[in-house]
Amino acid sequence: MRVSDTSDNAREALPATTPLMLVVGLGLPYGLVIGGFLLFEHVDGVVFGFPPAVAWLFACMVLVPVCMAVAWWLGRVRAD
């Protein structure tokens, strides 16, 4: 197994850390994970074999990267 030590485009700038980027990349994930869990833990039933609150957290494993990807894009737009 050969893993490169130096395979990154380090010369590109870091996307800007703006208030909007913080809301989308940090605030929204907190709202989704904590708000959703508190909401769904009181719901009866089963989603794909899991309790609704647990299933929601599994969904957040996809939703949270989407939030961060949008925040990254917003930061890049601002940096450009």
Binding site: T17, L22, G25, L26, P29, Y30, V33, I34, F37, E41, P51, A53, V54, L57, F58, C60, M61, V64, P65, C67, M68, A71
Partner: peptide, 20 residues
């Protein structure tokens, strides 16, 4: 489920914190 919520919740949210 309550344990799963705490455990997955904190690991999941550590990534946006790290992102910033």
């Amino acid at each position: 489920a309550a344990f799963a919520g705490w455990f997955m919740g904190y690991i999941l949210l550590s990534y946006p914190v790290g992102f910033v």
